[in-house]
Design a protein around this nucleic acid. Sequence first.
DNA 1: GCTTCTTTAGAACGACCGTTCGACGGTCAG
DNA 2: CTGACCGTCGAACGGTCGTTCTAAAGAAGC
Lengths: 217, 217
Amino acid sequence: MPDETTPTPADPTSAPAASTPRAPKLETLLAAAATTFATRGYSGTSMRDIAHDSGISLSGIYYYTRGKSSLLYEIQSRTIDALIASAAQALSRVTKPTDQLLQFVENHVSYSNEHPAFVRVLSHETAPDGSDERREAVELKRKQYVDVLRDILDRVRQEFEAPVSTAFAADMLFAMMSGPRQWGVSDTELNVGIASRLIYDLFVHGFTGGTPPSSRA
Amino acid sequence: MPDETTPTPADPTSAPAASTPRAPKLETLLAAAATTFATRGYSGTSMRDIAHDSGISLSGIYYYTRGKSSLLYEIQSRTIDALIASAAQALSRVTKPTDQLLQFVENHVSYSNEHPAFVRVLSHETAPDGSDERREAVELKRKQYVDVLRDILDRVRQEFEAPVSTAFAADMLFAMMSGPRQWGVSDTELNVGIASRLIYDLFVHGFTGGTPPSSRA
DNA sequence: GCTTCTTTAGAACGACCGTTCGACGGTCAG
DNA sequence: CTGACCGTCGAACGGTCGTTCTAAAGAAGC
């Protein structure tokens, strides 16, 4: 399980080159920025919005960050780092491929449930102005995270026989785990464990629960 | 199969109260706006961007539309209308629940493949300023479209025994169909029919399924 | 020729954008 | 008390935003 208030288990600061002791307010700022980015979108969010939502004055924001794009980068970078670390820890607890798959799903859904704004910003937002190498760094880590799932699916595939490629299956599973907030807007107030189990079962066994068309219940 | 250049099979104009004969340029404008909205996002797109991409001058845009939010509404409204109509036509061709499910998936994936920008704008963008009832109208139609899938799943559920609710399953299926452009960014240059079949099989029978019900070629 | 309607576009409006600057109150060593 | 430093903020910068205004080019009927 990840931290309560911040998406990263360690390494609080990284933007101003040196580690300064002004961490706590940075966390508040990032949390407010993540929430606003998640709801209004990156381009739809103004610095004045973040200032208002975080309780920090507009100019005060620039004491803690380099600017708007750095805010986005910091949110995404911390979130994917925490996601990778959290997944690694969860996966170390089991060995069987299908168990690891369930662990991965549970971890992702759980983390997304605890830090919905951060995960949404990670998966849905992209900096339009940030021509830096920072965007590539986030993209690289995200591919690492995807590869973790792909490797698990490869091992599952060795055990069972899968009709689709692992890369394709990984994308579909990620789509399901990032699913809500779209289309049906189903009243999914489900427990995290139950929801994870449902996604896992649906992915592994399919919608028709293995029951052949001959036997009706 | 929907039209080639526009997402709606009929009813070209609707914004300026009266049906004017300036349709063709409106189509160009909407297509350019949809593409730009899809890539840069609604808030990240300026009217000057659309003017540049469509080849129409900035002030010329306001001769064809009421403004930016009307542009978004027109795109979303036309797209969901076309999607509903296209699905209805596709479903009328078969009667068996599982066949209808496959038809629905094929129709949605096919349409998304032919008009990716329009579908993306429909599913990902929301007008922040449009306080109108127009947003509710789009939302209502989208729920209608979702209900079409839910009804199909209900019928499938009567035939087979499903472990999850149809509402939840519908969300998961929509997530898979809207899947790409996220996470893995898998090199899914698949044929539309093959991709639809993969999603259908994965959804119905699961990752560890093996053989689908209908006889493979 | 003139009039009228459709379509186009340059210029400008006020509002808001991200960002910077200069100054303020507070704390603490000297 | 003085002076340096830290955290903070109001005010303002140049630029871009969505939108409107005004005028003019082209076509068509007289």
